[in-house]
């Protein structure tokens, strides 16, 4: 019992736990839209892009959140604008803009080696160094993004399902895309210190992909993804403390294990259903199979 209680005796852990839970929920929320837009790679790319912004902000003495946030927002808008150009596509746009931004950060670091150590947290996450200011920023970003998703629920759903037609039906898709880019950039920047640039993609993609295996309802998908994200963030932090491993890695490994368990369970349930008498008529493709097929297609499109 003491082992269970022990981490809560430390203030740094309580801060880290709260931050990881909030970030997990926030990434789970944004991840639903990213996965359904088949832009899973954007979380990975944008976190690298923001890393470049973080380095430049540091060099120019700007506030980290403002500098990196503005950089991420600009990158997301550029990706959006470039990806719309015929013959380019979102995957190539992400590849060009985010790696260029990351390369800029690396170039600045290599030129000024004296402060390279400070960016380990941005690359791999350092949840044990979460300050009260970080908690306020994460809380504020989470509240604003959740409110925007609540108020723009229908517009976001329609423009994710069919962006061209949403415009025809009067949805201001330009404003929706700009707002989405802003929310995504804010999410990535707020998450950077918790899971690090190298692991954010998993925090964004795994919870909604896992939730997708469990439901065909968009509303339930949002709720489940948020809960799974929070679960992976919070419990992952505890595992990080108990097993003395990096917090970002613990969160992502737990998320992957959860995905694997749900995948196996849903596949087994599907097989059982097909074996039941009277199930001669083929049922719809198992959710697990569909999600996997969608992921493979998405990967192939990226390649």
């Amino acid at each position: 019992m003491d082992t269970l209680r022990e981490p809560f005796a430390y203030e740094f852990f309580r801060h880290g736990l709260l931050a990881a839970t909030m970030i997990g929920a926030l990434c789970g929320l944004m991840g639903v839209y990213i996965v359904l837009r088949k832009m899973s790679y954007i979380g990975h790319g944008l976190s690298h892009s923001v890393f470049g912004g973080a380095v430049v902000s540091y060099l120019l003495g700007w506030n980290f959140y403002l500098g990196a946030g503005a950089w991420g927002f600009l990158s997301a808008l550029l990706i959006n604008a470039t990806g719309r150009r015929r013959g380019i596509g979102a995957d190539a746009a992400i590849g060009i803009i985010t790696t260029a931004s990351f390369a800029l950060g690396v170039a600045v670091i290599s030129k000024t080696r004296s402060f390279s150590r400070d960016f380990e947290a941005a690359l791999f996450g350092n949840i044990l160094g979460v300050t009260p200011q970080d908690l306020w920023v994460i809380g504020a970003v989470g509240a604003v993004v959740a409110s925007a998703v609540f108020l723009g629920y229908k517009q976001l759903l329609f423009s994710t399902f069919d962006p061209e037609l949403a415009r025809v039906y009067g949805v201001a898709t330009g404003r929706v895309e700009t707002g989405f880019a802003l929310a995504l950039a804010a999410t990535v920047v707020a998450s950077l210190n918790v899971v690090g640039a190298t692991l954010i993609a998993a925090a964004i993609v795994i919870p909604p992909t896992t939730a997708r295996l469990l439901t065909d309802s968009f509303g339930r998908l949002l709720a489940l993804s948020v809960l799974l994200g929070a679960w992976c963030g919070g419990v992952g932090m505890l595992f990080s403390f108990w097993f003395d491993i990096a917090s970002g890695a613990a969160i992502v490994l737990l998320a992957t294990a959860t995905f694997a368990a749900v995948y196996a369970a849903t596949a087994a349930r599907q097989r059982l259903r097909l074996r039941q008498p009277g199930s001669a008529v083929p049922a719809p493709a198992p959710a697990a199979g569909r999600a996997l097929a969608a992921a493979v297609t998405s990967d192939q499109e990226r390649a």
């Binding site: 359904l36 229908k154 759903l157 329609f158 399902f161 039906y169 997708r212 065909d216 968009f218």
Partner: peptide, 18 residues
Amino acid sequence: DWSFPVTVDQVVLMGRIQ
């Protein structure tokens, strides 16, 4: 995208978004 998680009601509601 037939794998998109929407019901028939939700698709039809999109036509009333305004």
